[in-house]
């Protein structure tokens, strides 16, 4: 991970040196990130239904934006928005959001479901979404995200509208076998309970 960041920065620095005019016409990550705040919250910490972007690893942010841009990831609005930014701008935004500390969302949850969800999380999800889903990883931060947004995301994964990687699909299948869709709901309450 670290070596990847170093490598990317070297590549970026090289790109800047080669085209100073492009540099002059590129907004800063701070500028670009500020334009997202009306939907995703100040510095990327959402207080509404839309997902927080703060603390998201830049690599995950960039993958998501490129998926929206190419149409491989389904969206309502983000497909139209992502097409407005160059790969360089998307990288700058990703770096900006990665550097922001996420503030978990204050929201209502059911504590019975949350504790049930914690058990399911530990069993099926913790290996990749570490520290109860708090740790920024290849799937972004799950803990403290909007529960409505997580519900939409899981519905898309289950319907096939959004692709799960093989590891995730295997674990989700196992979880569904154990607890049906109520287990997904319990997981979402667990992530929502972390405030």
């Amino acid at each position: 991970m670290n070596s990847k960041i170093v490598l990317r920065n070297i590549v970026l620095a090289g790109g800047v040196a080669l085209s100073s005019t492009a540099w002059a016409a590129t907004p800063s990550g701070e500028m670009l990130g500020a334009t997202c705040a009306a939907c995703h919250g100040t510095n990327g910490s959402s207080v509404g239904i839309l997902p927080s972007l703060a603390s998201t690893p830049a690599s995950y942010f960039v993958d998501s934006m490129k998926g929206f841009k190419s149409g491989t990831r389904k969206a309502t609005v983000m497909d139209r928005v992502a097409k407005g930014y160059s790969d360089e701008e998307i990288q700058l935004m990703g770096d900006f959001f990665e550097a922001q500390k996420v503030v978990p969302m204050k929201q209502k949850f059911e504590s019975v479901k949350a504790s049930q969800g914690k058990k399911l999380h530990d069993k099926y999800c913790e290996k990749c979404h570490e520290d109860g889903g708090r740790k920024p990883d290849e799937g972004g931060v799950l803990a403290g995200q909007s529960m409505i947004y997580l519900t939409f995301s899981m519905a898309d994964f289950l319907s096939g509208d959004r692709e799960m990687d093989k590891k995730m699909k295997r674990k989700v299948d196992e979880l569904l076998e154990e607890s049906d869709k109520a287990g997904i709901d319990a997981l979402i309450h667990f992530y929502g309970s972390q405030q």
Binding site: A38, V77, I148, F152
Partner: peptide
């Protein structure tokens, strides 16, 4: 339906912003 939810989410975030 999701856009309606996102409209409300946008409102919460922009006013807080």
């Amino acid at each position: 339906r999701r856009e309606m939810h996102y409209a409300h989410g946008w409102y919460a975030n922009i006013t807080n912003d």
